[in-house]
Design a protein around this nucleic acid. Structure first.
Lengths: 116, 116
DNA sequence: CGACTCGTACGATAGGCATCGTAGTACGGT
DNA sequence: ACCGTACTACGATGCCTATCGTACGAGTCG
């Protein structure tokens, strides 16, 4: 009943200085992925993939999480059968100060504007 | 030799409240377009399309400018044979405060980091 | 072991998009 | 009227990607 250990299954992440702005923007330009990132930011912790209830199949969900990971936006790690996801806040903040907050704020404003 | 008047040729732009964050991010996730926007921001005025010396053909350049315009990032207007381009700073700032500056800063940092 | 859950891999499909070349339009100057 | 410049329109091409379904692997719990 102890929380499951981190599995040894490898998940390739870009290093801190391999993160590219274009990739980050491309990752976040997809509504589904932007939504994931917003939820992740709101949770301010790690969330399992299955926590998200997205209007797409599991295959597609896996795809979107991979894009987010490979662009450097999130960090993923296996914990038992679950795969936990967390925002790479520190890396992004150091590379692009203020960007993530501005993006989240922008997304929040637009959401409020479009669905009052 | 007075400066040519604005032509009546129509160029469809999204209205202020038709601008979508996803479209803006998608537009800026393309290196060529991000570069255009950075030059435009640095010039802090209007620039003609032909001012830009991009490593693609003119067809492709036209395409990129159209994407930027249709996403609401820039405003285009004909002035004689030239087509002038300007950043929609005010609209973007009102919709997404701080976002454009954060993006430009991020792009600048990355450029400095990758080409020292 | 066996069943169940979570997530992956792979192939297929359909649509989007960056790019080019060529042919054409709009405008300004001579 | 003519020419040159600036940009566009259109079609083609090849790549990328969002989506799905099915079959499979890894881990947990009984």
């Amino acid at each position: 009943m102890t929380s499951p250990a981190v599995s040894s299954r490898a998940l390739p992440h870009p290093e801190h200085d391999e993160i590219r702005l274009e990739d980050v923007l491309h990752a976040l330009s997809e509504p589904m992925r932007l939504r994931i990132v917003r939820e992740l930011a709101a949770a301010s912790g790690e969330l399992s993939c299955s926590h998200f209830d997205l209007p797409v199949t599991k295959s597609t969900t896996t795809h979107h999480f991979r894009v987010l990971r490979e662009s450097g936006v999130i960090r993923q790690v296996y914990r038992g059968t679950a795969k936990m996801n967390g925002l790479r806040r520190d890396d992004l903040e150091e590379l692009f100060p203020g960007l993530l907050d501005a993006l989240l704020d922008a997304a929040g404003r637009q959401a409020g504007r479009l669905a009052p």
